Simulated scan of single mutants.
Amino acid sequence: MHQKDASSPVRDRLLQAARACFLGDDYHQVTTRRIAEQAGANQSMIRYYFGSKEGLYEEMLSEAFKPLLDVLDGPLLASVDGFADFLRLYYAAMAMQPELPRLVLKVLALNRGPGRRFLQQLLDRGRDGGARKIADFKRTGQVTAETDPDMLRMAFVSLAMTPMLLRDVFEEQMGRPMDADFLDGLAALNGRLFSVGLTPPGEVLP
């Protein structure tokens, strides 16, 4: 993936235009000419910064998930109490880009095509990072030795993605918006569920 002049205003405009185009239309319907025109840039700049349309697409996904990826390597998930803060960050990021969860689901469902390589790397990184975190939790006695990292990761992804994928359905059913306050409370509740569920038997949470 190309990383030339990462702070360039032209590069930033191309990423913003790509996000608007790809989230609003099917990948194969979006042309590099259309992206370049929307960004007010020359089409050749896409090749310069990203190598190709697919490279731009993958970089667009990478930029969108960067705040979440950074958390995997940071101190936020050093304890089970960090799940709530991570979910809060995830919900906020997805609320700003409501079409992104559906786009990710479509790429994963097709199991091929643009973005698949990046998402596979993202999932692999999450699995490896998650396994390390669970190993740390076990060593510090925060979870039981029987905790299955894959099951935990699947449960966490379900709690993270489902509210955003079905947001329109939930809002219609509840008759109220899933606004910032609602998502903050949901993150706190789901984080609490994780903390309670992972606490070894006999221990009491504060």
Rank of each mutant, 00 (worst) to 15 (best):
1 M>P: 12
2 H>C: 05
2 H>N: 07
9 P>A: 01
11 R>Q: 03
11 R>K: 03
11 R>C: 00
13 R>T: 07
14 L>A: 04
17 A>T: 02
17 A>W: 06
19 R>I: 04
20 A>F: 04
21 C>R: 12
21 C>A: 15
21 C>E: 15
23 L>S: 14
24 G>K: 07
25 D>F: 01
25 D>Y: 12
26 D>V: 09
29 Q>D: 13
30 V>S: 01
32 T>V: 13
32 T>W: 04
34 R>H: 14
34 R>W: 02
34 R>Y: 03
40 G>W: 04
41 A>V: 02
42 N>H: 05
43 Q>G: 03
44 S>E: 10
45 M>D: 09
46 I>F: 03
47 R>C: 06
52 S>W: 08
53 K>G: 02
54 E>T: 13
55 G>P: 13
55 G>V: 08
57 Y>I: 00
60 M>W: 01
61 L>P: 00
63 E>W: 03
64 A>E: 06
65 F>S: 07
68 L>H: 07
68 L>I: 11
69 L>W: 04
71 V>C: 13
74 G>P: 06
74 G>Q: 09
75 P>S: 06
79 S>N: 12
80 V>A: 14
80 V>D: 00
80 V>Y: 00
81 D>S: 13
81 D>T: 00
82 G>Y: 10
83 F>A: 13
87 L>M: 09
87 L>E: 03
87 L>S: 08
93 A>E: 15
94 M>W: 07
95 A>Q: 11
95 A>L: 14
95 A>H: 13
96 M>D: 15
99 E>D: 09
102 R>V: 04
105 L>P: 04
111 N>D: 14
114 P>E: 06
115 G>L: 13
119 L>G: 08
119 L>S: 02
122 L>T: 07
122 L>R: 13
124 D>V: 05
130 G>W: 05
130 G>N: 09
131 A>L: 09
132 R>P: 00
132 R>V: 10
133 K>A: 12
136 D>K: 09
141 G>K: 07
142 Q>L: 12
143 V>N: 03
145 A>F: 04
146 E>G: 11
150 D>F: 10
150 D>Q: 15
151 M>H: 10
156 F>D: 04
157 V>L: 15
159 L>H: 05
162 T>P: 00
164 M>C: 06
166 L>G: 06
167 R>G: 00
167 R>Y: 03
167 R>N: 06
170 F>C: 06
170 F>D: 02
171 E>H: 11
171 E>S: 12
172 E>I: 15
176 R>S: 14
178 M>G: 10
178 M>D: 10
179 D>A: 11
181 D>Y: 01
182 F>E: 15
183 L>N: 05
187 A>D: 02
187 A>Y: 10
191 G>S: 09
191 G>E: 12
192 R>D: 08
193 L>H: 12
198 L>R: 07
199 T>P: 05
199 T>Y: 05
199 T>I: 03
201 P>G: 01
202 G>R: 04
202 G>D: 07
202 G>N: 11
206 P>S: 11
